[in-house]
Design a protein around this nucleic acid. Structure first.
Length: 424
RNA sequence: GGAAAGUUGGCAGAGUGGUCGAAUGCGGCGGUCUUGAAAACCGUUGAUCUUCACGGGUCCGGGGGUUCGAAUCCCUCACUUUCCGCCA
């Protein structure tokens, strides 16, 4: 969440930036934050004074008892009663204001970076880079879902029976392709300097809140109410939370981690052809990269992450483009997001396969993730993450783009992992 | 799942109702000494809110309670360890 001190000192700027995200109640909410904060600080001062007085009296009473002056002590005790009444009342008021302020702050999204274009929807995203050649497919070329059943590598029907729509069963060479991609992505991340971790696939409420899934996206996560857990929608959640409530040494930065995990998303509200085949699943595999750095260097880190993702797509021989998301299409918590899309030649459409973002201090303020700068002052760090990569749409594009009459070609970089040059 | 014992600063570990944000040791940082280093010695070393500042408040796993006063007593939740049970 945003820092109150920043909002206080940059009211107009904050309102202007929130406007880029098409956040409608920007002005009223920002002003409400400022007034609640003023109230909070006034209450705190009053409360502190009363507590100071009560502490002073308590010490005095202690001294008097030690000196055997019980009568005088009793006299002072009577006075503390008054303090207690006031303390209780003010304490309740203070807690109420503080809670209200916190809820309000949680409802305000991150500010978009200056580079973020204005816009309402995906239509307004800015294409900043394109690479690769869109392949000419042979006459009988088909979409990946047809290829999946033709070669019997991914069974959507079977998944329907066992669980429901969006939980496919990967079979034989399909399962092997999954493993190949996961290992390929992890090895490549290792080469780029990311340290591998294997996080839990369920997180508690505090973790989901810290990275911003709660309260914003509660309905998008599968939950386990009996234990108060949530199935992770991305490894970003557990991996970033490794660093919750920590103060890093500046010499430890940048931190760069990668993690393979399965991801679980309810995708409530999705429908139509977008959900066909591998385009949108409830359970899928992804290798995530997470970075933590100082505000001075986080944008260098973002470039590094983008280059890493571009390198993966290049090695998979897939045509791709990079979009800079407009304010209206960005996530609640992001300051800037670059989406990577690959062209799916049989579906004849671009598929989002990666999203690389800098959250600046928005997540770290919730996480209480800080570092000591060169002056030994505690500062909020910047957090970044990206997919490198999510499997299903990569598989869709691989199958479609590399298909030929009697099989599917496996890109060179993947052959050693897959153990064959083709699927047939 | 049952039983017991625990949770204190970066770490180890004292502290069972008052002057305790907290002994001591280790580690860290600064210094003396040294050609340099080690050793020794001296000093320093938690976080957070508020204030221009002085100062004040809060934090001993989380939450609540008792008391004039709680790290210390009570309740509750979480976690850890050990034993038993179950089990990949």
């Amino acid at each position: 969440m945003l820092q109150v001190s920043f909002i206080r000192e940059n009211r107009d700027f904050v309102i202007e930036r929130l406007g880029v995200k098409n956040f409608s109640e920007a002005e009223s909410k920002v002003d409400k934050v400022i007034s609640l904060d003023n109230e909070r600080r006034t209450k705190q001062t009053e409360l502190d004074n009363i507590k100071a007085e009560a502490n002073r009296l308590a010490k005095e009473i202690g001294m008097l008892f030690k000196q055997g002056k019980a009568a005088e002590a009793e006299e002072l005790k009577a006075r503390t009663a008054e303090c207690k009444v006031q303390e209780k009342e003010l304490g309740e008021q203070f807690a109420k204001v503080e809670a209200e302020l916190k809820d309000l702050l949680l409802s305000i999204p991150n500010l978009p970076n200056q580079a973020v274009p204005r816009g309402k929807s995906a239509e307004d995203n800015e294409i900043v880079y394109e690479e690769g050649v869109i392949p000419e497919l042979h006459a009988g070329a088909v979409e990946h879902w047809t290829l999946c059943s033709k070669y019997d590598i991914i069974d959507f029907e079977l998944g329907n029976k066992i669980t429901g729509a969006g939980f496919p069963v990967y079979k034989s060479q399909g399962a092997k392709l999954q493993r190949a991609l996961i290992n390929f992505f992890l090895d490549e991340a290792g080469k780029s300097g990311f340290t591998e971790v294997q996080p839990p696939l369920m997180v508690n409420e505090a973790s989901a809140l810290a990275t911003g899934q709660l309260p914003d996206k509660e309905g998008q996560m599968y939950s386990v109410p009996l234990d108060g857990f949530y199935m992770i929608p991305t490894a970003e959640v557990p991996v970033t939370n490794i660093f919750r409530d920590t103060i890093q040494k500046q010499s430890n930065l940048p931190i760069a981690c990668c993690a393979y995990s399965q991801c679980f998303r309810r995708e409530a509200g999705s429908y139509g052809k977008d959900v066909r085949g591998l385009n949108r699943l409830h359970q899928f595999d992804k290798v995530e990269i997470v970075c933590i750095d100082t505000p001075e260097h986080s944008y260098e880190q973002l470039e590094m992450m983008k280059n890493h993702v571009a390198g993966l797509l290049r090695k998979l021989e897939l045509p791709f483009r990079i979009l800079r998301l407009c304010g209206g299409d960005m996530s609640f918590t992001s300051a800037i997001t670059y989406d990577f899309e690959v062209y799916s030649a049989a579906q004849k459409r671009w598929l989002e396969v990666s999203s690389v973002s800098n959250f600046e201090t928005y997540q770290s303020n919730r996480l209480k993730l800080r570092y000591k700068d060169e002056n030994n002052k505690t500062q909020l760090a910047h957090t970044l993450n990206g997919s490198a990569l999510a499997l299903p749409r990569i598989v869709a594009a691989l199958l479609e783009n590399h298909q030929f009459e009697s099989g599917i070609r496996i890109p060179k970089a993947l052959q050693a992992y897959f153990g064959a040059e083709t699927i047939f």
